[in-house]
Design a protein around this nucleic acid. Structure first.
Length: 543
RNA sequence: GCGCCCGUAGCUCAGCGGAUUAGAGUAUUGGCCUCCGAAGCCAAGGGUCGUGGGUUCGAAUCCCGCCGGGCGCGCCA
C-alpha cells in the first residue's frame, strides 16, 4: 500500500515547520502542481507566506526548512525563485497511484467517513404545471452530480423533489385544461387570465375527455392534470437518468397542519405583527431588507410559509446538511427562508440550508436562440435536448460549467458536429482502452503483479500523477459543490491518454513492459469510468 | 434606485494570492493512418484577463469606484 506522495510531502513540511518556526506549526501548507515541468512535481510557497511574519529572508527560511526534510520518495528539494520549495518525485513513487486504482476499482476516489452524515440535495422541484425545461435539466444534472459527489465523500445522501402542488398555479392549470376541454382556446374570450398556453394543455384536455371526464368538474380536472404532468416529468427524468429518493408534496404540509403550525410558532415567539389586515413576519431581524407578509388579508398564506414549513421537516428528518439547487431567479428566497427558520428558534444553524444557484440556459441552434418548443410553447424542454443530442451529451454539457455562469447550449456543436463534442472525447478514451484490452485478450487480474518501474517515459509518469489527483479532486468538488471540475479533470485525463496512446504502443513484444503499460491503461479506464459515473454519463466499451 | 451574480483568445469556457511564454475546447492554417479505434495525435497563429485606482515583495485572483450584461426587489409562485 503506497502512501499518497502529496500527503507525505505535506507531512514532512509540517514537521520541518515545527522545528524551524514552532509558532506557525499549524499554518496552512499549500502544495500545488507547477504548470512548468522544470519546477518539479510539487511546489510549496509556505516559506514566502511565513517569511514576512517571521521577519526572515524567504530563501534562507526555505533553505532552513528543506534541511530538515528527508524523504525517500523525492529527490532533494530545491529552493527556487523568491523562495518556493520544489519537490521532484522519484520515478518509482509516481506510479503508486496505478496500483491503488487497480486495488480500489470502482471505489477509487471514494472517501470513508468516520461519522457519515445524513445530507439532502433538493433539486428540480418543478411545479406540475408543464414539461421540464432546460433550466430544470441543468438543475437535474447539477443536483444529481452534487449528490453523487457527497455520496463519494462517504455521506448518506437523499435526493429530493418538492412538488408545489397546492398553489394558485395549480388552479390556473386546472382552469386552463377545463377551458381547453370545453373548446376555449388561448386568446378566446373566457380563456383564463393567467392560463397555460402550451400544446400539452390540449393533450391533457383531450385525454381527460376521452376518459369520460366530466368537463365541468374542476376538482377532477385538477387531479387528472397534476397526475398527468407528474407522470410525464417522471418519464423525462428517467430518460435523463435521474432518480429521486423522496417526492415531497406541498399539499401534505397543509394537510398535516404544518403550515399553520409555523405561523403559530412565529406568533408565539413574538416575531409577527398585524398591519393592513395582514400578518407580517419580522424577517428584518434576520438580515432581510424588509418584513414579509405571511398571511394575506384574504386569510391565505404566502408561498414562503409552506416553504419554511418544508425546511423544518428537513431539519427534523435529521438532515444536518441540505443543499437546494435553484435558479438564480429565486435567490431572493434564500434570505427569507433562512430568516423564517431562525424566527422559529428551533436551534437550526444560521446558514441552513445551503444553496447552489445556477444561471439560466440559453439554447442556440443555427446561430440563433431557440425559444420555442412545439410541446411547451414558450420554452425548450429537457426532452427536446435529449432528442436532439442524446442523454450523455446533455448531462455532460450541463455540468461542465460553473453553476453561476450563464450557459449557452450550442446544439449545433453537440449535434451536427458530434465528433467535436467533449463528452465523446472522454468516452472515446474509455472505449479505446477497452479496445486495447479486447485485442490483448489476457486476464486483467494478472496485471496487479506488473512491474511498474518499467514505466519511465514522461507521458506515463504524467498520466500516473493525473490518476493520483483524482481522490482529492473529488473531495474538493464535493466541498465546493462544483461538479464542473470533474468534467474538466476528465477532459484533461482523456487528453493525456490520447497523447500517450498516439506516441507509444501498448501491446509491445516485451512482456514486462506490456504488462506495466496495460496496468496503466486499466487504471486510466477505471478512473475515467468512475468520473463519468459521478456525472451520470455512461462509459461505453464501444462507440 | 437598492441587492446578488457575471465581464479572460473570433466563439464557448477553466484558472487554487505567486516563479520569464495567462490555459483548454472550438474556429483558422500546416503536418500524422503498411502500426493497439484518425470520434485521435503533433505544430502554428490568436489575449493591454471590461476599465481606473488601492493593498502586497507579487493581483486575472483580494478591496473600492466606473462602464457593460443577467437576475431579483408583490398581501405572485
Amino acid at each position: 500500500m503506497a502512501t499518497d506522495p502529496k500527503s507525505a510531502i505535506e507531512n514532512a513540511l509540517r514537521a520541518a515547520l515545527r522545528q524551524e518556526a514552532p509558532q506557525f506549526a499549524d499554518a496552512p501548507i499549500v502544495l500545488e502542481r507547477p504548470k512548468q515541468a522544470g519546477h518539479g512535481d510539487f511546489s510549496s510557497n509556505v516559506a514566502l507566506q511565513l517569511a514576512k511574519m517571521l521577519k526572515k529572508n524567504p530563501r534562507e527560511f526555505a533553505n532552513a526548512l528543506i534541511s530538515q526534510i528527508s524523504l525517500d520518495i523525492v529527490e532533494k528539494p530545491e529552493v527556487a525563485g523568491p523562495g518556493f520549495i520544489n519537490f521532484r518525485l522519484k520515478a518509482g513513487s509516481k506510479t503508486g497511484a496505478i496500483r491503488r486504482v487497480l486495488e480500489e476499482g470502482r471505489d477509487y476516489g471514494r472517501a470513508r467517513q468516520a461519522q457519515p452524515q445524513k445530507m439532502q440535495v433538493e433539486f428540480v422541484s418543478a411545479n406540475p404545471t408543464g414539461p421540464l425545461h432546460v433550466g430544470h435539466g441543468r438543475q437535474a444534472a447539477l443536483g444529481d452530480a452534487i449528490a453523487a459527489l457527497l455520496e463519494w465523500q462517504g455521506h448518506a445522501v437523499t435526493r429530493e423533489f418538492y412538488y408545489n402542488d397546492a398553489g394558485a398555479q395549480i388552479e390556473n392549470l386546472a382552469l386552463s385544461v377545463k377551458a381547453r376541454a370545453n373548446g376555449v382556446r388561448p386568446g378566446d374570450a373566457g380563456w383564463p387570465e393567467e392560463g397555460y398556453n402550451g400544446e400539452y394543455i390540449e393533450d391533457i384536455a383531450r385525454e381527460f375527455v376521452a376518459k369520460d371526464g366530466d368537463k365541468t368538474n374542476l376538482d377532477a380536472i385538477r387531479q387528472f392534470a397534476v397526475a398527468y404532468l407528474r407522470a410525464e416529468q417522471d418519464v423525462d427524468l428517467q430518460a435523463f437518468g435521474v432518480r429521486f429518493d423522496v417526492y415531497y408534496l406541498e399539499s401534505s404540509l397543509y394537510a398535516e397542519g404544518k403550515v399553520a403550525g409555523v405561523v403559530k410558532a412565529w406568533s408565539d415567539n413574538g416575531k409577527t405583527y398585524e398591519q393592513d389586515g395582514a400578518l407580517w413576519l419580522r424577517t428584518t431581524e434576520y438580515g432581510d431588507d424588509k418584513n414579509r407578509v405571511v398571511r394575506k388579508s384574504d386569510g391565505t398564506y404566502t408561498y414562503f410559509v409552506p416553504d419554511v414549513a418544508y425546511h423544518v421537516t428537513k431539519w427534523q428528518r435529521g438532515f444536518k446538511k441540505v443543499i437546494n439547487v435553484q435558479g438564480t431567479d429565486h435567490h431572493s428566497t434564500v434570505t427569507r427562508v433562512r430568516a423564517g427558520l431562525q424566527a422559529l428558534k428551533l436551534g437550526i444553524p444560521q446558514g441552513y440550508p445551503d444553496y447552489v444557484l445556477h444561471n439560466m440556459v440559453k439554447v442556440m441552434r443555427g446561430g440563433a436562440e431557440v425559444k420555442i418548443s412545439k410541446r411547451a410553447g414558450s420554452y425548450v424542454t429537457v426532452r427536446d435536448l435529449i432528442d436532439w443530442v442524446g442523454r450523455d451529451a446533455v448531462r455532460f454539457f450541463l455540468v461542465s460549467r460553473k453553476a453561476d455562469s450563464e450557459f449557452v447550449f450550442d446544439v449545433d456543436l453537440a449535434l451536427e458536429k458530434s465528433e467535436e463534442n467533449p463528452v465523446y472525447y472522454v468516452q472515446y478514451a474509455h472505449a479505446r482502452v477497452c479496445s486495447v484490452f479486447a485485442q490483448w485478450g489476457g486476464d486483467p487480474g494478472s496485471l496487479s503483479g506488473a512491474d511498474l518501474n518499467r514505466l519511465a517515459n514522461p507521458r506515463e509518469l504524467t498520466l500516473s500523477q493525473r490518476l493520483a489527483e483524482f481522490p482529492e479532486l473529488v473531495a474538493t468538488a464535493a466541498r465546493e459543490h462544483a461538479p464542473h471540475s470533474v468534467a474538466f479533470y476528465l477532459r484533461d485525463l482523456a487528453g493525456e491518454f490520447h497523447s500517450y496512446y498516439n506516441a507509444e504502443r501498448i501491446l509491445v513484444e516485451d512482456e514486462a513492459l506490456r504488462a506495466a503499460r496495460l496496468a496503466l491503461c486499466a487504471a486510466v479506464r477505471q478512473t475515467l469510468a468512475n468520473g463519468l459515473s459521478l456525472l451520470g454519463v455512461s462509459a461505453p466499451e464501444k462507440m
